[in-house]
């Protein structure tokens, strides 16, 4: 029904698409460590060696773990399997709170201790008015 040229172009587009998908897939697979924005405390625990490069660790701020003195703030990031102590001096974002998501950027002292120079608050996918949140809490 269709001319030979149309069929040829059809085959070409299919091959072209498959090649692009495979290339993208391979590149993303190889670069996996760079694609993820942060690592979890459990992934830090599995590291074979501690590099002196900057690293980002994310998870939940553990309940009752935030301690502030002077300009310093100490807290624990948890993924409910492993924990990591973080120390940071400076101001934290407004959304930084216990039992909320956080990403800390800095240098590892050892597998359990991070000296952060930047704290980012993570927001989750829930949006609601304050009254609804209140009634949910009760």
């Amino acid at each position: 029904m269709y001319s030979k040229k149309v069929k040829l172009r059809f085959v070409f587009v299919i091959v072209f698409l498959i090649l692009i998908v495979l290339t993208t897939f391979t590149v993303l697979k190889v670069l996996k460590d760079n694609v993820v924005y942060f690592k979890s405390p459990s992934e830090i625990n599995l590291l074979s060696e501690i590099s002196n490069k900057k690293i980002r660790v994310g998870g939940m701020v553990k309940k009752d773990s935030v301690m502030m003195n002077n300009n310093k703030i100490n807290f624990i990031i948890t993924d409910f399997k492993n924990e990591l102590y973080v120390t940071f001096s400076g101001t934290v974002p407004n959304l930084f709170e216990e039992e909320k998501g956080v990403v800390a950027e800095g240098f590892l002292n050892d597998k359990k201790f991070l000296v952060a120079d930047k704290i980012l608050a993570k927001h989750d996918e829930n949006y609601m008015p304050p009254e609804v949140k209140k009634s949910l809490g009760e």
């Binding site: 587009v13 072209f16 698409l17 692009i20 998908v21 993208t24 993303l28 694609v35 993820v36 924005y37 942060f38 690592k39 979890s40 994310g58 990403v103 980012l120 993570k122 927001h123 989750d124 996918e125 829930n126 949006y127």
Partner: peptide, 29 residues
Amino acid sequence: SLVAIAGFVNVPIIKFSVDWWASLHQPSS
């Protein structure tokens, strides 16, 4: 048209990026 077809591969990556990798951006609501 080849640019558009190649670029379309990126569309599912955008959609599922928040589920596939640890990201700062929140997942879909």
